[in-house]
Design a protein around this nucleic acid. Structure first.
Lengths: 209, 209
DNA sequence: TAGACTGTTGACTGCTCAGTCATTTTTTTA
DNA sequence: TAAAAAAATGACTGAGCAGTCAACAGTCTA
């Protein structure tokens, strides 16, 4: 009965994945609150309403849980950002799309962003270098679009990669500030300001006649 | 013999301060490498070539050592940035001064910046909120200068505080990127690009005739 | 329903590390 | 140079926590 075996195995996997995602959700919350080092596996277990032993059935270590949380969310963020960028037409629109995608995702997944922005890179975990790797592709897409816009003289001739990273920095900075305090402005206002600011900088210098 | 007592006490204080600053230096290095949580007092002691017990003669706790490191360096950074801003004339020059002061200090005090940019805020330590407090004043000075430049129509009419924080974000972002990887550009190039970029954005929109 | 099997549990173990303090070393005083 | 004072030391203690595992609970099979 190979089909049945197949069936059983699949069911098992489904349950296992469900448990894993439950644990990841609990861990995300705890890590966002305490940071990697200060968070305990007991807390994650309590948050997930499971015993510690059960956690270790589905994950090998605290570190692996942490990596699972980050990989999961970084992957989704990357996919979404790339999607939005691809859907946009001009370089300026792609930049808007980038900024907006980040702001939106940050609102939706506050805990993930807290981990991203607040976590030390020096833990024995997925380093910020690895995380940066994940963020690289969207930024690179921006750079490509910027490059061709520069060729068409639509925007000032600056190094495209540098410009793209600058857009990323502005977005990160604004989001970090929002996460750090109680923001006095709405996310929309902040995002719009950023986009306006970037567009102003990109405006090619007026040609002297 | 009050003078002698005075003398003795002063000498004691001098020695004590010397020891403290030795410990702070060692701690800065270790914290920069490992982060607050992962760093151990034993490592700091080894780095300072002292026994752990001696550390506890001059500081009450690991947390206090950490705070001493940050307060010390944040204070110097703030003072220097304010100085440079004050010395500059126009708003644009003040912005340059801000960016340059940060870049310079970052080169000089790599370890401090590593702690600043890489440390979790969630440790039971001087929070990023407190650190932000320290960074607030220079940014505010920038905002003041920007405000009056806007009044003179020298730069685009955007919210001054927001603009000032944007300058800070750009600087922080660029420095973080430099610290994260092996930079392919010089600090000068990065700083100059930033300043150019900001100036381009600040350029008032050309008036249509 | 007995027995086998799968998933869950939380008390327990071993290790790390912040902080202590009785002892030793160095410096000062007389 | 001997006694007293100050500074430095590092072995030790207790707390906290990652990871384990023998026992238990729930589910399926014959």
């Amino acid at each position: 009965m190979p089909e049945l075996a197949q069936q059983i195995k699949t069911k098992k996997q489904v349950v296992s994945e469900f448990r894993q995602s439950e644990i990841i959700s609990a861990a995300r919350k705890v890590f966002a609150e305490k940071g990697y080092m200060a968070a305990t596996v007991d807390e994650i277990a309590a948050e997930a309403a499971l015993a510690k032993g059960t956690i270790y059935v589905y994950f090998e270590s605290k570190e692996q849980i942490y990596n699972a949380v980050l990989e999961n969310d970084l992957d989704a963020l990357r996919a979404r950002t790339l999607e939005q960028i691809a859907a946009a037409g001009t370089a300026r629109e792609k930049i808007s799309a980038y900024v907006n995608a980040r702001f939106k995702y940050c609102e939706e997944r506050r805990d993930f962003f807290r981990i991203m922005y607040i976590e030390p890179s020096s833990s024995p975990v997925l380093s910020k270098a690895k995380a940066r790797e994940w963020l690289r592709e969207p930024v690179h897409q921006l750079a490509v679009a910027i490059e061709s816009a520069i060729a068409k003289k639509l925007i000032s001739p600056w190094p495209p990669e540098l410009l793209a990273w600058t857009v990323a920095d502005l977005t990160t900075g604004a989001l970090q500030r929002r996460l750090a305090g109680t923001p006095t402005t709405t996310a929309r206002e902040d995002a719009d300001f950023l986009i306006e600011f970037i567009n102003a900088a990109l405006r090619p210098a007026q040609v002297e006649n």
